[in-house]
Simulated assay, not measured.
Amino acid sequence: MPPSALLIPGGRGQLGADLAAARGAAGLVHAPGSAELDITDSGMLTDAVDSFADAASDAGLRPVVINLAAYTAVDDAESDRATAERVNTRGPAELAGLCRERGMPLLHVSTDYVFAGDAVEPYEPTDETGPRSVYGSTKLAGEQAVLAAHSRAWVVRTAWLYGARGANFVSAMARLCAERETVSVAEDQIGSPTWTADLAGGLLELADSVARRDEPAARVLHCTNTGSVSRYEFARAIFEELGADPDRVRPVATADVPRPAPRPAYSVLSDRQWAEGGLTPLRHWREALRVAFERHGAVWGAS
């Protein structure tokens, strides 16, 4: 069976770029950025979905939509709830309805911020949610709206994303490594760093599965690189890959570096249901970081 055709709203970011690159010339891919496809614009959204459905039909391919469009400015969302709700909740809900009407499955990417972050073992998709930020609450509302609007929609939660394109923790640490003698990083935030190239591979596997209707029964799934680490230890690993002394990274408490939006203290997501759904677990986060630097080290200034 040929690979699925993909429409990827929010496709100009780091994950969208890796998704498009991973699929390559093997199938039809349309990955518009927000300027080309604003999911809060009903007319633009309808036209994009209809055009994609027609193109997929003409190519003889089964269409799947992977929604990456999101308001991800976590701190700004605290004072801009209206915009966060439009992008993270209402836009995805309308997209899900259009996909339902046209018989297209939808994968909707979400976040660890839907949890309170007070767990002591990896969160299962069925665990109680409890977002502590506007960003988290609008993403959770978006999940619920998508699942209610379309019976063939899946939510994929992930966490701590980094890639070669755009701003992320790895690029920030690389910049600070070049600018400062020491860098202070929270040692009481625990999560699973996830390379966008690896997540892209997982999403493509899921997209092709649902296109051929060999899909997981669970409609909420978690997908991250495996293993867990503190932000502080993650930063030390980044310095190692940069060829810098990891002792230049200094541990601090989250309370010592306050931000407008609270960060989850614990963001580790269990991939048990991902694996039980017949999908391939991602590799360990440390191995992924090493390979990411082999491929993109020059972008981050590795020696």
Rank of each mutant, 00 (worst) to 15 (best):
E240Q: 08
E121K: 13
G33E: 04
S110H: 05
E181W: 04
R175T: 14
A298S: 14
V64T: 07
D112Y: 11
A82Q: 12
T280G: 12
A217C: 00
T138N: 06
Q14L: 15
V109K: 01
R152H: 14
T83R: 15
A275I: 08
D112I: 12
L37S: 05
A211M: 06
D214R: 15
P264H: 09
A218R: 13
R62V: 06
A77C: 05
E124R: 15
S34H: 15
T182L: 09
E287R: 14
C99W: 07
P125F: 05
S42C: 00
G10V: 13
D58I: 05
M104H: 01
F239C: 13
R102H: 06
V249S: 02
R236M: 08
L203C: 04
S133R: 01
R12W: 00
S51T: 14
V252M: 14
L61Q: 15
G142L: 05
T111E: 01
A21L: 15
A178S: 13
R102E: 04
G33R: 10
F169C: 01
R286Y: 06
P281Q: 10
A255K: 10
L95Y: 00
A17D: 10
D58L: 10
V64G: 00
E36H: 05
R23T: 06
L68S: 04
L176V: 00
R290N: 03
E143S: 11
P105E: 12
A200Y: 07
T40D: 06
R165P: 00
G13Y: 09
G91E: 04
T129W: 05
G227H: 05
A235M: 09
Y71M: 06
R212A: 02
G10Q: 13
D188M: 03
V268W: 08
L199S: 02
Y123C: 06
T158A: 11
L176Q: 09
T196I: 11
L206D: 02
A25Y: 02
L61V: 02
T126K: 08
L140H: 09
L269I: 09
R23V: 13
P92F: 01
T280F: 08
G117W: 01
E121W: 12
M44W: 07
S42L: 12
A148S: 15
W300R: 10
P246V: 12
A275V: 15
L199W: 03
E179M: 13
A21I: 10
H296I: 01
G60K: 12
E128H: 08
G103I: 05
A298R: 14
E187L: 01
G91T: 00
A96N: 04
A55R: 13
T89M: 02
A25C: 11
F169I: 11
D112N: 14
A153S: 15
G142Q: 12
R213K: 12
E233N: 03
A55M: 08
R12N: 09
P63D: 03
V185K: 07
V291S: 10
L282F: 07
E36M: 08
L98D: 03
R250A: 12
R286A: 14
S228D: 10
V220S: 11
S57R: 14
G166C: 07
